[in-house]
Design a protein around this nucleic acid. Structure first.
Lengths: 359, 359
DNA sequence: GGCTACTATTGGATCGTTCCAGCGAAGCAC
DNA sequence: GTGCTTCGCTGGAACGATCCAATAGTAGCC
């Protein structure tokens, strides 16, 4: 009788209210503050909800509460490298963690018409076409499409972090605010230095004394952090690092050339690498010299990528606890969005070592 | 004067209208149907929008238009295999394509508290804990959180596709409706069979005559499709397939054992594999026999994963045009959501071959 | 001028939810 | 009985956009 016309549309609060013989607000309370209702009313409403298969309309709820329950995550233009491959493992855990917290993950990317445009242009415009670091964030924010952001590329000197912090936008970073001691935003990171130390200990236990480092370019915060784990731990073991370090691009080819150069001059018996890509380069160099990696001539990578797992021989590698990172990030996001005081600003998690045939 | 109180909140249509000296609706039109406005009014409104940094509130728009401009994509519980690694490349392209079409990608996952629960339980309950194939879809749909879905795992006999189709929910599948000729939903797929044919041709050109197949288990639609490319093309070249085919789990170990068995009995000079994982297994077997892959003893994988690119020697592999798949999918989604008639129900794209050292 | 036709713009209603003020009934103290 | 508080529930208003019907202004045509 009192039921609305309901032209085949989904049930609304009013529909459920009529069905249960209560007011709209009571149904709303049944969902949001069940403790306000008398138990018998609550069950009556819940039965009606069940019977009609009702779910509250997200858009209406978002409009009224000024919250979208979405977390924005920007995926960078596709570059096929191990960092991206990592993202995948991370994403799964992230989506699961956010679900448990009542949130969803919204993916976005920079607003420029990227690849195609730069192909046509190809002129001096390439400079202006350089991806604006804030592209995308601004629009999502102004249109209230997301409640918070998750940053994943703080190694670039995080202009995003500063921008967001300045505007009081809630966000959590995966990665420390390297080189910005003034940063006041929550973050979660993996202790790469400790991970490399694990690798060094593992090699020293197996009798290695000449352990080389093949890592990222100087100037990369993350690269230097990982390298410090190698250098400091070797010294703690009373071993020399002299002339045993190579730093360059994070590419297969640099790893390969670095390994050849090191083998020619310093005769290391083990290589610790800043990434799996570099480690694969080292393996290739060994292959080219008809050397077989193993307990006597060891290689350790970083990231425990799929490639490390399936290549022959299997590559020992430092594994980041990405599942745990996701959980911690969502915990921080939850605190942030509920305006709970943060128990701690940052948190570092310790990696593990996946031991395989190359050691 | 007429401007609203505006307690530090974001500008709304009313704010902009006051600033430009027009009505709300005119501002709305400036955004949605600019051709309705007189040019001078349009510029006046656009300037006001620019000046205030206005973006329409998503929630309000969604509520009124009954559209969220979000595409739901369910990510499956993390399994570390090549299929997931593929997803990554695909995701990037997908997000870019959807952006160009004015949409965003919303990630979700099954609603059950998955991994943890099944760890505790470990009993006969494992059956009920078996992931409900529709988990998550239903809720997002009823709450109008997404406009459409994108399915990516049609190889499982797609119960989702049938469920969604039955309810008239817009969705596009990445993958053919294998074994369901009654399916009437749009899909985009990669012609795996043609990809394997490319690999066979490549090997035949290099003089191979005994080309083995190492692929997925019998009964997998995709696996059989890829295998048919090998079998049919060999026959077209007048070559024998007899006893040269091995099918089993998509694991490194199966690839390894299959390669050993084939080498012992049939002495193939080349292996075409149903996945990179299997190919890496074959490479490991060769390694164990001190055989070096290359032009004389060749291996071809499928997926062109990161592992194929960085392993030593580099693995020749069939590469899926995932970027193009994403574009086609979004094109179909656009047609679907705009209620445009579909020009074609399904579309298959042809892979390419990334040639490396193993051939 | 008077009629129609069309254009540019307007204001009210509406989407489905939650916030807020308020109401009757019940409980308690005096 | 009166006054006060608490409990359980209600109905109107609001969030910010778009849909819709209606308006004033302009032009065309006889």
């Amino acid at each position: 009788m009192t039921r609305r016309p309901d032209r085949g549309g989904a049930p609304t609060l009013a529909t459920v209210a009529a069905e249960a013989g209560v007011s709209r607000q009571t149904v709303s309370n049944a969902l949001n503050s069940p403790d306000l209702l008398r138990p018998e009313t609550l069950t009556r409403v819940q039965e009606a909800i069940e019977r009609l298969g009702y779910s509250p309309n997200r858009a209406a709820r978002n409009l009224r509460t000024r919250a979208s329950h979405l977390i924005g995550l920007r995926v960078e233009p596709a570059v096929e490298d191990s960092a991206n491959a990592l993202m995948d493992r991370f994403l799964h855990s992230l989506v699961e963690s956010t679900r448990d917290a009542g949130y969803h993950v919204l993916l976005f990317t920079c607003g420029q018409v990227g690849a195609d445009a730069s192909l046509d242009a190809g002129t001096a415009e390439a400079v202006t076409a350089e991806a604006d670091p804030m592209d995308g964030y601004d629009e999502l924010l102004r249109s209230a499409a997301v409640d918070a952001f998750l940053l994943t590329d703080t190694y670039r000197g995080n202009p995003q972090a500063a921008w967001l912090e300045e505007r009081g936008v809630p966000f959590v970073a995966f990665g420390r605010p390297w080189g910005d001691p003034a940063a006041r935003h929550p973050w979660v990171d993996v202790d790469g230095r400790a991970g490399v130390m694990l690798a060094v200990d593992h090699l020293v236990e197996r009798g290695h004394e000449r352990i080389a480092w093949v890592g990222w370019q100087k100037g990369s915060y993350i690269g230097e952090d990982r390298r410090s784990g190698w250098a400091d731990r070797l010294h703690e073991h009373g071993l020399s690092t002299s002339r045993l370090s190579a730093r360059g691009d994070d590419t297969l080819d640099f790893g390969r050339r670095a390994a050849h150069a090191l083998l020619d001059s310093e005769h290391p018996t083990a290589f610790v690498c800043g990434s799996d890509t570099l480690a694969m380069g080292v393996l290739r160099a060994l292959h080219e010299r008809d050397l077989t990696p193993g307990p006597e001539l060891s290689v350790v990578g970083f990231d425990d990528s799929l490639a490390a797992q399936v290549c022959s021989p299997g590559l020992t590698s430092v594994r980041q606890p990405l599942e745990q990172v996701a959980v911690e990030i969502v915990k921080h996001l939850g605190d942030l969005l509920a305006h709970r005081p943060l128990t701690e600003l940052g948190r570092t998690l310790v990696p593990t070592l996946s031991v395989r045939a190359t050691t």
